[in-house]
């Protein structure tokens, strides 16, 4: 295992060392100590590395991740795993706004709560949140699945496309074109699988499913007030 101490090395050193592994793999296991809320930690990785960040991270931690598995033993700032393509990011604490924004693939697990706009414009990622999420989550979300074991804030799934949302607790309000949908066997199955992969011991039957009513897909004069 290779350790990088961020009181001695810079964020640039860390990211360059991680990127170099995609060209010439020398070390799979990485430990990052003293992150102290620094931004842009472990961004743009393109190799199946395993990275443990021992503390809190700032903005865009594990941004655009490909293949790597990143665990943050603390809280994270805005945009954790933004635009992730594949791999896995696990946050042991809570996440700020825009967690998993626009991410195309992989699995993002937040064991605590997530702030506003969780899963905004998500494009295929799976996000599982142990706690609650803030307002405007899944705004314009296009694909992938969001699972929330706690509650959801205002305007969940506003202008949603094809993302499927599962919430166990209460939903303060649904955004335009987002509706509660029937939980069928295939949904219980995919939810069970997601909870299992995320390592949460929850009963899928206690969740409700939300999705797009698909009324705003094509502009209709009668829907003008919903835009």
């Amino acid at each position: 295992m290779k350790t990088i101490n961020l009181t001695e090395s810079t964020v640039r050193d860390l990211n360059q060392a991680l990127h170099d592994q995609a060209r010439d793999l020398r070390e799979r296991e990485w430990l990052v100590t003293h992150p102290d809320g620094k931004h842009n930690l472990a961004v743009g990785i393109n190799e199946a590395l395993s990275i443990d960040i021992q503390g809190h991270a700032g903005y865009y931690c594990a941004g655009m991740n490909q293949k790597a598995s990143v665990t943050v033993h603390g809280n994270v700032g805005v945009g954790v795993a933004e635009n992730m393509m594949s791999g896995m990011v696990r946050v042991k604490g809570s996440a700020s706004q825009s967690a998993g924004a626009t991410a195309h693939g992989g699995l993002l697990v937040i064991e605590g709560d997530a702030g506003a706009r969780c899963g905004i414009s998500m494009k295929g990622v799976d996000i599982v949140v142990g706690g609650s999420i803030g307002h405007m989550s899944c705004f314009m979300a296009q694909a992938g699945r969001l699972v929330v074991c706690g509650d959801a804030g205002d305007a969940l799934g506003d202008s949603l496309y094809e993302t499927r949302i599962y919430v166990k607790g209460s939903v303060k309000s649904l955004g335009s074109d987002c509706i509660e949908k029937e939980m069928r066997a295939e949904h219980l199955e995919e939810l069970a699988e997601l909870l299992n992969r995320a390592g949460f011991d929850e009963d899928p039957a206690s969740f409700k499913r939300y999705g797009s009513a698909r009324q705003l897909y094509n502009f209709k004069v009668d829907n003008a007030s919903a835009y």
Binding site: V11, R12, N15, H39, N40, V43, G44, G58, Y59, Y60, G63, M64
Partner: peptide, 9 residues
Amino acid sequence: IKIAEIREI
């Protein structure tokens, strides 16, 4: 911070 992220990537 966003610009720094893209530069880092």
